[in-house]
Design a protein around this nucleic acid. Structure first.
Length: 698
DNA sequence: CTGATTGACGTTTTT
DNA sequence: CGTCAATCAG
């Protein structure tokens, strides 16, 4: 074997035509197989740019591009099919859909320059919709509302049909909100992340000419992490591949962890039904982890009922047995873990980048971050509050988005009075109402002299100022001589954003930190400009929205290169580390309380999550739990995760059942308390007078 | 219109 | 115990 692949891997690499399902276990060299197969296709005469590889994350796309470039010496491009620079097209579902939609938006009644709304933009639209519907936050919060819509969209349900499907009161409210939400974002020419997929699917389904044109761009399609495709993605792939049938999908049903986002394991389990002539290759040899770690993984996942039966074979020796540690509090857990890492680093046997600390929720890492900072261990927190979520960064981007596309209402509302320029709440309300009334974007409404004349003097001036600012920036952008970074700098000084920061944040350190992140935005734009052949604002904004987290400053990137990784199990998928710590192994966290109910638990996906965590580890694995955790101001007892018993082969240990029952009881009590609070609130409304007086007395 | 204070509330994961 | 939204006095 010239390239060091085993026979199964060889088979996957050498099957060059027709449908191919690669059932790849964790650590089976999946990524290598995919890249080798692409190289092989090219070697056998496929033009590189007629190969489309779809990845799940931007990071995976970037890595694959690098590997391919490394192997073939060919450059690959991110997601610009049709341009003559050669390599295979590698990108995520979302980035590919954006490209397709940008080419055909008009056919769906969208403007060429549609904005892409991310989670935070969506929330602001959702808040507005809920306010219009007079929905109290006790009934439904913006997040809940959006997950209803998202679930419908993932299942291909449009707002016209949602009402019929709604059963509960909450669903009915969500359904009527769905209509308003969808009309609102369409009016401002925006699409959300789900729309990117939904609209592409619709485009292909309703316009055969477009489907033929787009699918005709490729002769081969490869899809990674196929177990995580949802309904729209499944359909898009089918539409693209049904002509040539050269479709290779790679995945592992045991690592399906995005069910909550509409992913359906059935797609990978049923692949042979949809593509009957498909060849199936199973990769069950694991090259990543030590035997002892794999034993844990195999024992654990065997508890799941819905799965392809498979057992990972260890290609390596047994290695160190994994450890399970208990600490008194979550602070002790963090301290113990970090101290150990620091100690190992002192011996120089390992580098910071060899370690990962994995957890379930984004709130867990706080303590670990504190401890890592104290111990002066470099770390990088993946996900969570990303750079582009910081207020000042979002503000600047909102300005850019207005310059790019003045219809973008969410962005306009964000910066219309930031920094303050005398346009108050009342004025905004009036503008908005008038715009809605006439069915035009707010920005256009602001250009109506009749309306302007009704505004109070300060607001009048404010509107004039923001209009002239945007005009100036637009002109500057069109001017060849000034770069996008120049436009950005001009913007910051024109609105005196620095002064705004000084006024808003009295602490000098915080003010400086915020100013630094402004600088980083300018750097990011400058970097984008130097790295892209045909830089333009729309494209920059797309990239930021679709992959915001990975855009950090050069400085940030460097420190992240060799740092202890702090991340969720979800973000860890596809990665590997010599030393892994899985922390907070408690009932209620992993499995998460939301998957546990009175007597029927739905924890299979949580178990897969745990499995993903275990199989990230190459040499050493440590699982830990604090015996108490601070919650709502009180230190409370925790229960050991049922998974700890399962993976150590102690499933019949009575303590496992005690744990499960313990957490169920706790959840039940929590629910009862919530109910009591709710009824109390209800009665307080009618009999409010009775209870109010004693409180005021003090 | 702006900045400060008080009260309610707290169940997950992300392209 | 913190966070954030709603509320209130300049």
């Amino acid at each position: 074997m010239s390239n060091g692949l085993n026979p199964e891997q060889q088979e996957a690499v050498q099957t060059l035509s027709g449908p191919l399902l690669v059932l790849a276990g964790a650590g089976s060299g999946k990524t290598r197989v995919v890249t080798f197969r692409i190289a092989n296709l090219i070697k056998h005469g496929t033009a590189p740019d007629r190969i489309l590889a779809v990845t799940f994350t931007n990071k995976a796309a970037r890595e694959m591009r690098e590997r391919i470039a490394h192997m073939s010496g060919k450059k690959t491009k991110s997601h610009r099919p049709g341009k003559p620079d050669g390599g295979p097209v590698v990108g995520t579902f979302h980035s590919n859909c954006v490209q397709i939609l940008r080419r055909h938006a008009k056919r769906l009644g969208y403007p060429d320059k549609f904005a892409i709304y991310d989670r935070s933009d969506q929330e602001s639209v959702a808040r507005d919709v809920l306010r219009q519907l007079r929905v109290h936050s006790g009934m439904m919060k913006p997040g809940d509302f959006l997950s209803h819509i998202s679930r419908w969209k993932n299942a291909g349900v449009r707002w016209q049909q949602a009402g019929e499907l709604a059963k509960t009161d909450v669903e009915h409210v969500a359904a009527s909100g769905y209509r308003r939400y969808q009309q609102a974002i369409k009016l401002v020419g925006a699409v959300d992340f789900d729309d990117l997929l939904l609209l592409t699917e619709e485009l292909f389904r309703e316009h055969e000419d477009i489907r033929l044109k787009e699918s005709g761009l490729y002769d081969h399609i490869l899809v990674d992490e196929y177990q995580d495709t949802n309904q729209s993605q499944y359909s898009i792939i089918e539409q693209l591949a049904k002509g040539h049938r050269n479709l290779c999908v790679v995945g592992d049903d045991d690592q399906s962890i995005y069910g909550w986002r509409g992913a359906e394991v059935q797609h990978i389990l049923n692949f042979k039904n949809d593509w009957p002539e498909a060849k199936v290759v199973r990769l069950e040899a694991n090259y990543r982890s030590s035997g002892a770690i794999l034993d844990f993984a195999n024992r654990l996942i065997a508890f799941n009922k819905v799965r392809h039966d498979k057992v990972l074979r260890a290609a390596r020796g047994a290695g160190k047995p994994p450890r399970i540690l208990q600490f008194k509090t979550e602070l002790d857990e963090a301290r113990g873990t970090v101290d150990e890492i620091a100690r190992i680093l002192d011996t120089r046997a390992r580098q910071p980048g060899d370690f990962a600390i994995l957890f379930r929720t984004n709130e867990q890492p706080r303590v670990f971050e504190m401890e890592l900072r104290r111990a002066k261990v470099p770390y990088s927190l993946v996900g969570s509050q990303s750079f582009f979520d910081r207020k000042e960064v979002r503000d600047l981007l909102a300005y850019l988005r207005i310059v790019d596309n003045s219809k973008d209402e969410v962005s306009l509302l964000r910066i219309i009075n930031t920094p303050q320029r005398g346009i108050g709440e009342k004025t905004i309300e009036n503008l908005l109402a008038a715009a809605v009334n006439r069915g035009i974007p707010m920005w256009e409404m602001m250009e109506d002299p009749a309306l302007i004349s009704t505004l109070p003097e300060p607001a009048k001036q404010g509107v004039a100022r923001i209009q002239s600012l945007v005009d100036r920036l637009k002109a500057m952008l069109a001017d060849e001589k000034s770069s996008m970074a120049d436009v950005m700098r001009q913007l910051i000084s024109s609105v005196d954003y620095m002064g705004y920061i000084d006024r808003t944040y009295p602490s000098p350190e915080e003010a400086q930190a915020r100013k630094d992140s402004l600088e980083e935005v300018v750097n990011a734009i400058a970097e984008y400009e130097t790295e892209n052949r045909d830089p333009n604002l729309s494209d920059f904004l797309d990239e930021v929205t679709l992959s915001g987290k990975e855009f950090g400053s050069p400085k940030e990137k460097q420190t992240q290169q060799n740092a202890v990784a702090l991340m969720t199990y979800h973000s860890a998928k596809g990665l590997e580390f010599p030393i892994v710590y899985m922390v907070g192994m408690e009932e209620g966290i992993l499995p998460h309380r939301r998957s546990i109910s009175d007597n029927v638990d739905d924890v299979e996906e949580e178990r897969r999550l745990c499995y993903v965590g275990v199989t990230r580890a190459q040499d050493e694995l440590t699982m830990s739990l604090p015996l108490t955790r601070k919650k709502w101001g009180k230190q409370r007892d925790t229960f050991a995760s049922r998974f700890l018993y399962e993976l150590t082969g102690q499933a019949d240990n009575p303590n496992r059942m005690k744990s499960i029952q313990g957490v169920r009881k706790e959840i039940k009590q929590g629910e009862a308390a919530a109910k009591r609070a709710k009824t109390k609130a209800g009665t307080a409304g009618t009999a409010g007078g009775k209870k109010a007086s004693p409180k005021r007395g003090s």
